[in-house]
């Protein structure tokens, strides 16, 4: 079933959405005739897109943003997944950690931006920090939920069939059983991290897609702003799809 649609079949809904947006956009431009620095027509933005691609600038900025997200996302995974596994299995650890997490979780990563600038300046570490905040909680919560959702009988079966130590139970039962949920959490947190890095770059950066947008605003180039937004959208969708694919490959749920 899954294989049957082919690449084109997967792309079709996105092409439809893109076409829809372009049509509405062109309609708005034709009807309201806004100044080109406010809302340029699609073809001008396409031209700007091409120029930024041709000059390589778009790749540089996208690469910088992706690099920040990936490193912070990876870092948060290294902490959130083990902590989530421990919280899901031990009521004591959960009681200790949960109130802290519940208190910090509602604070949007964006609210941390001013502190991040004060603490780290506008260097890389501040951005890593922001994305870390944005990716940590979704990964953690999905891991905890994954562990808690493990059917008790699977734990029992693991014990009966020779997982004597907590470690072997973790390695052979808890981790594989919770993996689909963990991977989903990682995918979702990549999305939140991607949103957070753009916001952080809007405020304080000299590179990245967020900077490209902020810069476009400063020099009154709405086309540059729109090119940046389009790149953010395309990359977001592409990485989400990629992670979904990797997730299906890695976990047993996709085999159903």
């Amino acid at each position: 079933m899954r294989e049957g649609r082919g690449l084109f079949g997967h792309l079709l809904p996105y092409l439809y959405a893109a076409a829809f947006i372009v049509v509405v956009w062109q309609l708005v431009v034709t009807l309201t005739k806004p100044h080109v620095s406010l809302l340029p027509p699609p073809y001008l933005v396409a031209q700007g897109f091409y120029e930024l691609v041709a000059s390589g600038k778009l790749f540089v900025h996208a690469g910088v943003s992706l690099g920040r997200v990936f490193s912070a996302w990876f870092l948060s995974m290294l902490i959130a997944v083990p902590l989530g596994l421990a919280m899901g299995r031990s009521r004591l650890i959960e009681r200790l950690a949960d109130p802290l997490i519940e208190l910090l979780r509602p604070i949007s990563p964006l609210a941390w931006i001013p502190l991040a600038i004060l603490w780290f300046g506008i260097g890389e570490s501040g951005k890593i920090f922001i994305v870390f905040i944005g990716t940590f909680f979704p990964t953690l919560l999905a891991t905890v939920a994954g562990v808690k959702g493990i059917e008790p009988h699977l734990i029992h079966a693991g014990q009966v069939f020779g997982c004597k130590s907590q470690f072997s139970l973790f390695r052979r039962i808890v981790l594989p059983a919770a993996l689909p949920s963990i991977i989903t959490g990682l995918r979702i947190s990549f999305g939140t991290g991607w949103a957070a890095i753009i916001a952080a770059e809007l405020v304080a950066a000299r590179s990245g897609l967020g900077y490209l947008i902020a810069n476009g605003m400063e020099i009154l180039r709405a086309d540059q702003v729109l090119v940046g937004m389009i790149a953010i959208g395309i990359l977001g969708v592409a990485f989400d799809a990629g992670l979904r694919y990797v997730g299906r490959r890695l976990t047993w749920e996709g085999a159903a």
Partner: peptide
Amino acid sequence: NYALFPWL
């Protein structure tokens, strides 16, 4: 309910 390991 079998309790088989679905990842294997």
